[in-house]
Simulated assay, not measured.
Amino acid sequence: MGIEDLVNQAKAAVGGHEDQAKDALDKAAEAVKARTSDSQDGIVDSVVDKAKDYLDEQEK
């Protein structure tokens, strides 16, 4: 199983459940931020925002 297969499986799992995926991203971000220094918060938020933007593009 290659990376492309994993990406396709993830897309299939998220399809139609974008809002739930965004909620999961928020919860994961909070967990990461709780375990890392405050200086990393901006990076975590940036990654989450990009992931949410990607999900929004997939909805179209």
Score class of each variant (00 low, 15 high):
D38E: 05
V44G: 02
L25C: 15
E30W: 07
D26L: 12
G42A: 00
D45K: 01
K22Q: 07
A29L: 08
V32E: 07
T36P: 01
Q20W: 03
I43Y: 09
L25E: 10
H17E: 09
V44A: 05
R35W: 11
D53T: 13
D23F: 03
V44E: 04
A51I: 04
L25H: 13
V48P: 01
V48A: 09
D23C: 03
S46P: 08
L25S: 11
K22Y: 02
K33I: 11
V48R: 02
K27E: 06
K27C: 05
V32R: 08
K52I: 13
G42Q: 02
D45G: 04
L25Q: 10
A24T: 13
E30Y: 12
D41I: 07
A24N: 12
A28I: 09
Q40D: 08
A31I: 14
D38N: 00
R35L: 10
K52D: 10
K27Q: 12
A29W: 04
E30D: 14
G42W: 00
Q20S: 11
S37V: 08
D49M: 11
A28F: 06
A34K: 12
D45C: 05
D19T: 11
K22R: 10
R35K: 14
H17F: 07
D45F: 01
A24G: 09
K52G: 13
Q40V: 09
R35M: 12
D38H: 01
L25V: 15
V47R: 02
D23T: 05
A31H: 13
H17T: 02
S39A: 12
T36M: 03
A31F: 14
V32T: 10
A28C: 03
D26T: 15
S46F: 04
E30N: 12
A31Y: 13
A34L: 06
A29Q: 00
D49E: 15
A28S: 05
D41N: 15
D19V: 09
A51K: 02
D45W: 07
T36L: 05
K33T: 14
V44N: 03
D23Q: 07
D49V: 12
K22W: 03
G42R: 05
A51Q: 06
D26N: 14
S39E: 13
D19K: 10
K52V: 14
Q20I: 07
D49G: 09
S39G: 15
Q40G: 08
